[in-house]
Design a protein around this nucleic acid. Structure first.
Length: 268
DNA sequence: ATGGTGGTGAAACCA
């Protein structure tokens, strides 16, 4: 039985609604996790997604900033949760539970703080917030609930491996690729018994990017990307991974997000 | 070393 899960930092769900609709029509994942919806809950365009068959929708939004949403063609159980990280009420996490065949799966959708420009928490509180957020994510285990498999997706705003950035050396002091962040995220991964599905499918040294800055003159020619978006799962699901696709073409669509969708397909 | 672009929501803040 196939299962496909997609994640996409959309950078305003209302502005880019036509792009999300196009993606859902053409790629039709079972579930799509969005980040940076930048949309208050009461203004979320539910009807547009319901019309495309995504009738099971959970949202965790706020005005102006952040925000995550999970759109599903599969029924969701009444077990969704919105966790508070660092005691700050930003809309950065949402998890849902669904059944697939004999399995029960909890799917976490994260938007990790970007962390500002200066990689020093003594002068940049946003970087401190990011490090604290990652520290708190270490409490999240892939086998947290008996009999429940786990998937974790989202914009984690960290490119953990050498070949997750266009130049390891030039980015070592750039927020998203500093050692304290990459070691922190690696520790969240291994400590929680998670499997990095993108790297299981395409190991290093192949370059993998999911984000290209808006500020480049020609993002495609420069190709200075980073792998900021991730799909992880518990080992039982990883054993049934079929494919992972990074939809690079979406970066070239009309008025694009700076992130592209990532889609994992399982054969369960 | 610097500034480059884009979103929200109407100025400053964030990515």
């Amino acid at each position: 039985m196939p299962l496909s899960i997609a994640t996409w930092n959309i950078n305003s769900v209302r502005l880019r609604l036509p792009l999300v609709e196009h993606f859902l029509k053409s790629w039709a994942p079972d579930i799509l996790c969005l980040q940076e919806t930048k949309c208050p809950n009461e203004l979320f365009p539910r009807e547009a997604f319901e019309a495309l068959g995504y009738r099971h929708i959970e949202i965790h939004g706020q005005k102006g900033y952040h925000g995550v949403a999970t759109l599903s063609r599969l029924p969701l159980q009444e077990l969704s949760e919105r966790r508070l990280y660092c005691g700050i009420s930003d809309a950065r996490h949402l998890s849902v539970v669904f059944s697939h065949g004999a399995r029960t799966i909890r799917l976490h959708n994260f938007y990790v703080p970007a962390g500002g420009d200066e990689p020093d928490r003594t002068i940049n509180v946003k970087f401190g917030h990011k490090l604290d957020f990652i520290e708190e994510m270490k409490l999240l285990h892939a086998e947290a609930e008996a009999g429940v498999s786990s998937i974790l997706v989202g914009d984690l705003n960290i490119a953990p491996l050498e070949h997750d950035v266009w130049s390891h050396k030039q980015l070592l002091k750039i927020v998203s690729h500093t050692p304290i962040e990459t070691e922190g995220l690696t520790s969240v991964l291994s400590g929680g018994s998670w499997v990095d599905l993108m790297r299981q499918h395409k190991p290093e040294p192949e370059k993998l990017y999911t984000w290209w800055s808006y500020r480049a003159r020609d993002w495609q020619a420069a190709d200075r990307g980073r792998r900021l978006d991730h799909i992880w799962s518990s080992a039982d699901l990883a054993a049934h991974l079929n494919h992972v696709e990074i939809l690079k073409e979406a970066r070239g669509w009309e008025r694009p997000s700076d992130h592209v969708p990532v889609i994992a397909t399982f054969d369960l």
